[in-house]
């Protein structure tokens, strides 16, 4: 394994470890979203506060909501993968073009 690959693997492992460790070591924590916790704190600060506008779409069931978040991630991941793939392909074409002059390709 060359050094560049090793660094890539270590970076990926670092990211995975950052989020796997709290899950494994965290015990019974529920991992409430901070956005929801902030709403709770707002209502502690001002128990009389009532939201004056509600979401344009009706409340979603948790599974539908996580599905929509997955769609968002998939859209972003798809576009990112497409761009990186195109850039990589472009480099491959350029390198093969400059490495072998026309008519001198190895037989």
């Amino acid at each position: 394994m060359n050094r560049r690959t090793l660094v890539t693997v270590l970076l990926v492992l670092g990211v995975v470890a950052l989020f796997a460790v709290p899950l494994i070591a965290g015990g019974p924590a529920e991992y409430t979203g901070t956005d929801n916790q902030a709403t709770t704190v707002i209502l502690q600060q001002d128990p009389g506060y009532r939201p004056w506008f509600s979401s344009v779409i009706p409340p979603l069931s948790p599974s539908v909501e996580s599905g929509l978040f997955a769609v968002q991630a998939a859209l972003g991941g798809g576009v990112l993968g497409y761009v990186l793939g195109r850039l990589r392909g472009r480099r491959a074409v350029r390198e093969s073009g400059s490495a072998t002059l026309p008519g001198t390709e190895p037989q």
Partner: peptide, 27 residues
């Protein structure tokens, strides 16, 4: 345009993912 798309897509993916943290919350 390609790189702009990559920058937008990167934000799109990351902001869709809720991750657990050491505090027992996710964000």
């Amino acid at each position: 345009t390609l790189l702009l798309g990559a920058a937008g897509a990167f934000t799109f993916v990351l902001s869709a993912i809720k991750l657990p943290s050491v505090t027992g919350s996710s964000s």
